[in-house]
């Protein structure tokens, strides 16, 4: 029974990683950049929801929606101001700019909201559901997290394969020049990608803070790194890969915490990542790129 309960909490943590990783992987797939500020957008989303629910006493649903809208605006603004002028710049310059944005968001949050940890309200509701005569109890937040992840996964798959915008996105990630010749506005598509990624980051932020209710300006950075790792784990640029990578990473983390050692859990997660990349250098579902001479 412990196994099952570990498995379910791993699944829940993994779902959060997967939602964050989607933001990384979509942006990477289309703009070929590592958006290091993504983890901090999560943090901003959590803070917005926190203020909406516990300070302004808005209903949780409104809080989540508000967080999603403001994060979308934030994500698109960042893209416009900082990343768009660097579209043709070397990738390291873009990386440093993203790091700059990350510093900026963290320090702005510290100035605006101080570094005192805030206790995140239970947006989703407390309580738990009992199975097997109460031997296995699953909290509501866990169920909501997993359900949200499934919904997002289905919706995104539908979006990228069936809608015009989704097809444009796939076309851009395949070949930007050819996509432009076919009349796709590459800049607009990239903006939409950032918007979707940031909205997902807001959802992930709310879920993350509901599961681990201490909220600080640095809350987003470690989950950000882990989610980035899971995006690479699954093969960066691939949407199903990010999902799979996130969930596997969450499960591995919880199992190593439960069965091996709490202190070493991060080391084990990263060690598994390294082993996977050595066996399959482009991640689990990544495309094998053959090098032409």
């Amino acid at each position: 029974m412990t196994f099952l309960s570990y498995f379910i909490s791993g699944l829940s943590l993994g779902s959060i990683y997967a939602i964050i990783a989607l933001g990384y992987t979509m942006v990477y797939g289309i703009a070929k950049m590592l958006n290091f500020a993504h983890g901090d957008v999560i943090m901003v989303g959590s803070y917005i929801c926190f203020f909406a629910v516990s300070r302004w006493n808005l209903p949780p649903v409104v809080g989540v929606l508000l967080a999603m809208i403001l994060c979308t605006v934030l994500g698109v603004t960042i893209e416009r101001l900082a990343y768009k002028p660097l579209r043709s710049a070397p990738s390291l310059s873009v990386l440093i700019t993203a790091i700059g944005i990350s510093y900026f968001l963290q320090n702005a949050a510290q100035l605006l909201w101080t570094s005192n940890p805030k206790v995140f309200p239970s947006v989703v509701g407390d309580g738990s559901v009992k199975f097997f005569d109460g031997r296995l109890s699953i909290s509501v937040i866990t169920i909501v997290t997993i359900a949200t992840c499934v919904v997002i996964m289905v919706a995104l798959t539908w979006f990228t394969s069936k809608t015009r915008m989704g097809k444009a996105m796939r076309a851009c990630s395949e070949d930007k020049g050819a996509a432009q010749l076919m009349g796709i506005s590459v800049n607009h598509t990239i903006s939409v990608t950032f918007a979707i990624g940031s909205a997902l980051a807001a959802i992930a932020g709310v879920l993350l803070s509901s599961a681990y209710p201490t909220l600080m300006p640095t809350t987003g950075s470690m989950p950000g790194i882990k989610a980035f790792t899971s995006a690479v784990f699954g093969g960066i640029g691939s949407i199903p890969g990010a999902m799979l990578g996130g969930i596997l990473l969450g499960i591995i983390e919880i199992f190593s915490k439960g069965y091996i050692s709490t202190q070493l859990s991060d080391a084990i997660v990263f060690a598994v990542l390294i082993v996977i990349l050595l066996v399959k250098p482009t991640g689990l579902l990544g495309k094998q790129i053959t090098e032409k001479v």
Partner: peptide, 12 residues
């Protein structure tokens, strides 16, 4: 942070 971003934008 702002200096960092501006330097990157300016040099590119």
């Amino acid at each position: 942070a702002v200096v960092l971003i501006l330097v990157m934008l300016a040099t590119n």
